[in-house]
Nucleic acid binder design. Structure first.
Lengths: 136, 136
DNA sequence: GTAACTGCAAAATATTTGCATCCTT
DNA sequence: AAGGATGCAAATATTTTGCAGTTAC
């Protein structure tokens, strides 16, 4: 199973909740918020387990957070280059204003930004809001 | 007073809390989170008033939100072109990873993003994380 | 004087922590 | 068997809502 190997590769024990939550990310196209996961997972897991599992996955570099302006952080699978402590996330994110799906556009690289004198750029986050291909 | 005219211009009555909160934005260089405002305003205002005032300012286009990846939205003053319902926010945001100040870099325009076929871009948000001029 | 704004209380929601139990390795 | 993961209970923290009293215009 894809979930099992992904977990093992990251030194995590293979448990029901981790498999299920990882499965949700693998089968869906969009990013998921904490609430989405609770809903999709049904009543199977404790709310606390979802919090802890998401945090574990972020720590291990399996998923990453997508910034938002509405206090509801979404999470999405990292690509393979991500590893613990070193998250290489050079793609942009797209939020559909109609269906509210958030996508990782892995093929669109974050642009170079020219900062004013004195500022040193590290990581660049780009979130584009608009209409996705399904809602057009 | 600058605060008074800014409030009047937006059709808001001039009250102590609105003046005080607006003042905090005008005198500070960085963006403010809800918690920052509570702290800086001292014990003067009820927590609920801060929530409502921020929401009112956002609705009127006086301030705008800055997305974040840590569930703590920050707010910053809009430039003059912003108006109710129509927020024109073409600048990028910068978060210092040392002092954790968030700046609006008004002179840095958001780049053009080439989206995959089928996606229609609306608003583009760019948040750069790095080291600011004061912390270098 | 009237409409809008504020503070207080309380409800609703979200997140974190401790601990005993259960599961994975 | 041992360490880690989970569920439950409860502590915290955050945000929203209703309402009565106060303030701005």
């Amino acid at each position: 199973m894809q979930t099992d190997s992904l977990l093992k590769r990251n030194g995590l024990s293979v448990t029901e909740s981790r498999k299920k939550i990882l499965q949700l990310f693998l089968e869906g196209s969009g990013a998921l918020a904490h609430g989405d996961i609770e809903k999709k997972a049904g009543e199977k897991f404790d709310r606390v387990t979802v919090y802890r599992t998401l945090q574990t996955f972020v720590d291990k570099g399996i998923i990453h957070t997508i910034p938002s302006a509405d206090n509801s952080i979404r999470y999405a699978l990292c690509k393979d280059e991500c590893s613990e402590g070193h998250h290489h996330d050079h793609h942009i994110h797209f939020e559909c204003s109609i269906c509210h799906t958030t996508y990782c556009l892995d093929d669109v690289v974050t642009p170079q930004i020219n900062l004013p004198k004195g500022y040193v750029a590290g990581h660049v986050e780009v979130v584009v809001e608009g209409v996705c291909k399904n809602c057009k």
